[in-house]
Simulated assay, not measured.
Amino acid sequence: MSLDYQTFLAILAMAAATALTRVSGAFLLRFLTIGPQAREALDAIPPAVLMAVIAPTALATGWAETIACAVTALAALRLPLLACVVIGVLSVVALRAVGL
């Protein structure tokens, strides 16, 4: 397998942009005071992103995926994002194992 020089540079540039975005956000938040309404809005972002990612799967695939998406959506109401992802993956695996 060979890696093209331009492809390698593009991957490095995307990695740098991702890292800088994350670091700059954490750095800038040190200088801002966030009120309770803004905090609630920021806390709502991870479940919203999760739903945006899994909604196409729920609508375009089989029953196992659709049920797992519903289970994940319910979990997202109370649990952190990583826990919801784990629950969603395990739900798909279990539902596929039983033949749905």
Results as ranks from 00 to 15, higher is better:
residue 46 P to M: 09
residue 67 I to F: 05
residue 70 A to D: 08
residue 74 L to V: 14
residue 5 Y to A: 08
residue 3 L to M: 10
residue 84 C to H: 06
residue 15 A to N: 06
residue 99 G to E: 11
residue 97 A to G: 08
residue 17 A to W: 09
residue 83 A to R: 11
residue 65 E to D: 12
residue 75 A to Y: 02
residue 99 G to L: 12
residue 92 V to A: 11
residue 66 T to G: 03
residue 97 A to H: 14
residue 36 P to Q: 13
residue 28 L to G: 03
residue 56 P to C: 06
residue 69 C to F: 11
residue 44 A to H: 01
residue 93 V to K: 14
residue 63 W to N: 05
residue 10 A to W: 12
residue 84 C to E: 02
residue 61 T to V: 08
residue 38 A to G: 04
residue 34 I to E: 05
residue 27 F to D: 04
residue 21 T to S: 15
residue 76 A to P: 00
residue 44 A to F: 05
residue 77 L to W: 11
residue 100 L to T: 10
residue 83 A to F: 04
residue 100 L to K: 09
residue 13 A to G: 10
residue 37 Q to H: 04
residue 57 T to G: 01
residue 53 V to F: 03
residue 89 V to Q: 04
residue 67 I to L: 12
residue 5 Y to N: 00
residue 71 V to L: 14
residue 51 M to K: 09
residue 88 G to P: 03
residue 31 F to Y: 11
residue 83 A to P: 02
residue 100 L to I: 13
residue 29 L to M: 14
residue 27 F to G: 01
residue 76 A to R: 06
residue 39 R to N: 06
residue 19 A to T: 04
residue 1 M to E: 10
residue 93 V to F: 15
residue 47 P to I: 11
residue 90 L to D: 10
residue 2 S to K: 13
residue 4 D to Y: 07
residue 75 A to E: 07
residue 44 A to D: 08
residue 33 T to Q: 03
residue 39 R to F: 08
residue 89 V to R: 09
residue 85 V to R: 03
residue 13 A to T: 15
residue 57 T to R: 06
residue 85 V to W: 05
residue 20 L to M: 15
